[in-house]
């Protein structure tokens, strides 16, 4: 990270990052927040603002593969880094990421506003070997992402489905969300 401590707060500085696989240069003020730069300057609205204080998880993105609250990160901190947002998760041909596909099938959302953050946290979590695969561990790991619609049960089922899918097995219809009483 560069040292911007002597920089005027009103002037902008260029930041070079890899955004969803593409090189991007953007001029930002030193105190510009990554979330605001994504949403307003780069007009990538998929990353949501729910609190601006790192409390709700709606703004979760991957920075060098690690899930982060983009509302708690200065854009200038991303110099030379790889940033992935929800817009960069599906395949180039439009095929959904297994987590996205599982969210669709399990109805793991309602209003959809926390959904990008849930999905970005879930995809990072599934890659994180420190986090166990049982339901309780997933619930604990995902607890930084609030879903006020309360679709937690379906989100958990979707994550576990996607885990199976990504491991090459058939989606396990765990007892959690499989019964259909309608």
């Amino acid at each position: 990270m560069k040292d911007y401590s002597e920089h005027s707060p009103d002037a902008t500085v260029p930041v070079h990052l890899t955004l969803n696989g593409e090189p991007v240069s953007v001029d930002v003020t030193p105190n510009a927040i990554l979330l605001d730069v994504l949403r307003e300057q780069l007009q990538l609205g998929g990353t949501k603002k729910g609190c601006d204080h790192g409390q709700c998880g709606a703004c979760t993105v991957h920075v060098d593969g690690i899930a982060m609250n983009s509302c708690l990160r200065l854009a200038v901190m991303c110099e030379g880094q790889e940033v992935t947002t929800i817009e960069g998760l599906a395949e180039a041909d439009g095929r959904l990421h297994p987590v996205q596909q599982a969210f669709l099938e399990r109805d793991a959302y309602q209003c959809g506003y926390c959904t990008p953050g849930q999905i970005m946290s879930a995809t990072a979590m599934l890659d994180d070997e420190r986090i166990a695969s049982d339901d309780a561990a997933v619930r604990e790991a995902m607890s930084g992402n609030i879903c006020r619609c309360g679709a937690y049960r379906n989100i958990l089922a979707a994550i576990q489905d996607a885990r199976q899918q990504m491991q090459g097995a058939d989606p396990a219809r765990s007892d959690l969300a499989s019964e259909v009483r309608s």
């Binding site: 949403r39 007009q43 990538l44 609205g45 998929g46 990353t47 949501k48 603002k49 947002t85 929800i86 817009e87 998760l89 599906a90 959904l96 996205q100 969210f103 669709l104 959302y109 959809g112 506003y113 959904t115 990008p116 999905i119």
Partner: peptide, 13 residues
């Protein structure tokens, strides 16, 4: 799909 890929377009964005 719009909600899952970030293309839905809520007012604030």
């Amino acid at each position: 799909e719009y909600k899952l890929t970030g293309r839905a377009g809520y007012t604030g964005e």
